Structure formats: C-alpha cells, structure tokens
Amino acid sequence: MGYELKIEIRDLRYFETIAELGHLGRAADVLCRSQPALTKCLHRLENEIGAALFERKGRGLELTAVGREFYIRASKICETNDRYLSDMREFVAGSVGKVRVGCGPITADYLLPIICNLVLRHAPNVSLEIMINTNYFLKEQIKQDRLDLIVGVVTDDDEFRHQAFIDDIVVVAARKGHPIFQSGPVKLRNLLEYQWILPTTLVASRKWLDKVFLAHKLHRPNAHIETNSLPSIHDVIGSTDLLCFLSRLTLDHPKTRGMLKEVELAETTMVRKLGITYPHGSLMPATARLIDLLNQHHHAHMATVVGGTPATT
C-alpha cells in the first residue's frame, strides 16, 4: 500500500537548483540560502523518499539513479504548480474563464456582436456560452445559477443589478402594403380591427401594450399568433396582414429587407432601455471583466457621439 509523501514545493525547487548546478555552495549563492539550510532540505527529501538523492563526486554532487528519476518528477510538479498558479492569477484578473450570457432577441442583433468583439479583442481566453430567449425566461435562469449575465431589456426592479446602455423604441408595425396604411389617420381603436402576432403574455412589452388598450377602455389586441422571439419571424409578419409590436431597431435592420413599416401612433410608442442585468453580490472575475469592457465601450461611444466622431466597436 502506498503512503502520502509530505514534501513542500519549496524543497522541490531547492532540489532542482542543486541538481542542475551539481554543487551545494553554488546553489546556496543562487538561492540566497545557507548551505546548512540546503543540506537540511536534502535530508528532508531523502527521509521522505527513503533513498539517497545525491552522491559525492569530487567537490560536487551527482544525482543517484533514484535522484535522476526524482528530478524528472520534481520538475514536472514544479512546472504544473507554476502553470496552475499562473492560470489562477489570470482567472482572478478575468483573463480566463467562461461567461454564460443570456440575450434577448433584439440585443442578439445589436449588443451581442459588440460583446463578442470586445471579448475576442481584449479577453481572447474568455469563452462565452450564449442563450437567446425572453427576459422573463433568462431571469429565471440567473436565479437558478445557469446564467451569469443578461444582455437585453433593462427593468427597474431591485431583484438584480442593472446598467442601461441604449434607448429602444417599440412600436406597432405591419407589412408595407398593409390595408391599415390606406385608411387615413390611424386611431387606437382602429388597431383592433386586425389580428396580431405578439410576444407571449409573460413578456413585458406585451403587458405594456395590453395595459394601453385597457386604459382607453378597449379590449386587448387579438393575438392570432404568440411567440417568444418576434424579431426572428419578420418574414411571417411581412407576408400577412397581422399587426405586430416590435423594436424600431428591428424595423431598421437589414434582415427585414424593408418589408415592415411603423404604424405611427403616440399611444402605442413604448420607450425602454437596453443594457445588462446581473445578480447582486460577488461575480466571477471573467463576468466582472466583461461588464468592465462593456462600460468602457459605452463611455467611449458616448464620448465620440458628443464629439461628433463616429464610434467603432
């Protein structure tokens, strides 16, 4: 049956130097230790190993057969120790690790590319695990410790920490040839003459829209289709007479190919913020590093906007 060796890394490092120099005095000078201290180090190692590690050769020292094997193993141990300690320093600095990012459908098009570019440029050894879903679902994932950070709509609740970066305007929209654009000025009640494709009832924008109609003593829009990723099915919106409620960012995005048009109405124009959401308390270093990179990018962007110079990612 084997037994556990009680050997300190310091003694292994001293042993390496002695073995490489083959001389106790020169090793003492290099290590800034006394010769008696190094002699005690060798005695400790030999007592633990149960065999001599060196034998005298003239005025120097030469490794025994056991010593040569022990030197190989000690070198590997010291190298591994250095590597893992170095990795730990990089981990604490946020230079390595994984960040589990939840992303809303809108921010998947607008903020996610910025995040990926920032990580690739400034923290290339940090990996990202990305989940795209609604804010409601993603918050549940944070609660269950399955996500570190959400990039999406920022709310004003105290359950999480929030940082807003950009404004987002959500409006009613339809395909460009929709009959609603042929009937003159549109009023809120006119929107109820058509069926809708809407986010599910748990999504904040859907709740907001329903409240607008109820506040005007009208019934809620009739959702013919419900989805948790409205921006992803713009082709459905563009090929039907369904009304939708989605971000102006989506209307302007190249992927919609100009198919959709805003139904201009003040009552159904919702202003919200896009940014990041993350838990209270301490964060994994890589997550904190990503948040810091996003803040730096945002401040640089704002500075260039104020200065009139185009911002870059």
Score class of each variant (00 low, 15 high):
residue 81 N to I: 05
residue 83 R to T: 11
residue 83 R to I: 11
residue 84 Y to K: 06
residue 84 Y to S: 02
residue 84 Y to W: 11
residue 85 L to A: 06
residue 86 S to G: 02
residue 87 D to S: 05
residue 88 M to I: 05
residue 89 R to A: 05
residue 90 E to Y: 03
residue 91 F to P: 00
residue 91 F to Y: 13
residue 92 V to G: 00
residue 93 A to M: 02
residue 93 A to G: 01
residue 94 G to N: 05
residue 94 G to W: 01
residue 95 S to R: 12
residue 96 V to K: 08
residue 96 V to D: 02
residue 97 G to A: 08
residue 97 G to V: 07
residue 99 V to S: 03
residue 99 V to P: 06
residue 99 V to A: 07
residue 101 V to W: 07
residue 101 V to H: 08
residue 102 G to F: 06
residue 102 G to P: 05
residue 102 G to A: 07
residue 104 G to A: 03
residue 105 P to K: 01
residue 105 P to V: 02
residue 106 I to E: 09
residue 107 T to L: 09
residue 108 A to T: 06
residue 109 D to W: 03
residue 109 D to S: 09
residue 110 Y to N: 05
residue 111 L to A: 09
residue 112 L to S: 05
residue 112 L to H: 02
residue 112 L to A: 04
residue 113 P to R: 10
residue 113 P to C: 11
residue 114 I to E: 07
residue 115 I to M: 14
residue 115 I to V: 15
residue 116 C to A: 13
residue 117 N to C: 13
residue 118 L to K: 10
residue 118 L to F: 10
residue 119 V to F: 00
residue 119 V to C: 03
residue 120 L to M: 12
residue 120 L to S: 15
residue 121 R to G: 02
residue 122 H to F: 14
residue 123 A to M: 09
residue 124 P to K: 07
residue 124 P to H: 04
residue 125 N to V: 00
residue 126 V to N: 08
residue 128 L to W: 10
residue 128 L to M: 13
residue 128 L to F: 11
residue 129 E to R: 09
residue 129 E to F: 09
residue 130 I to Y: 02
residue 131 M to L: 15
residue 131 M to V: 15
residue 131 M to D: 14
residue 131 M to G: 04
residue 132 I to K: 14
residue 132 I to Q: 14
residue 133 N to S: 15
residue 133 N to E: 14
residue 133 N to I: 02
residue 134 T to V: 12
residue 135 N to Y: 03
residue 135 N to S: 15
residue 136 Y to H: 14
residue 136 Y to R: 12
residue 136 Y to P: 00
residue 137 F to S: 14
residue 137 F to A: 14
residue 137 F to M: 10
residue 137 F to N: 13
residue 137 F to L: 10
residue 140 E to H: 13
residue 141 Q to P: 04
residue 141 Q to N: 14
residue 141 Q to G: 09
residue 142 I to F: 07
residue 142 I to A: 04
residue 143 K to S: 10
residue 143 K to N: 13
residue 144 Q to G: 04
residue 145 D to M: 11
residue 145 D to Q: 15
residue 146 R to C: 12
residue 147 L to M: 14
residue 147 L to D: 12
residue 148 D to T: 11
residue 149 L to S: 10
residue 150 I to F: 06
residue 150 I to N: 04
residue 151 V to N: 03
residue 151 V to D: 00
residue 151 V to Q: 02
residue 151 V to K: 00
residue 152 G to S: 10
residue 152 G to Y: 03
residue 152 G to W: 03
residue 155 T to K: 10
residue 156 D to P: 00
residue 156 D to T: 10
residue 157 D to R: 07
residue 158 D to N: 12
residue 160 F to L: 09
residue 160 F to T: 01
residue 162 H to G: 01
residue 162 H to P: 05
residue 163 Q to R: 13
residue 163 Q to F: 09
residue 164 A to W: 01
residue 164 A to P: 05
residue 164 A to K: 07
residue 164 A to F: 01
residue 164 A to V: 01
residue 165 F to T: 01
residue 165 F to S: 01
residue 166 I to N: 03
residue 166 I to E: 07
residue 167 D to R: 07
residue 167 D to K: 04
residue 167 D to T: 02
residue 167 D to W: 00
residue 168 D to C: 12
residue 168 D to P: 00
residue 168 D to Y: 00
residue 169 I to T: 15
residue 169 I to Y: 12
residue 171 V to T: 10
residue 171 V to R: 08
residue 172 V to K: 05
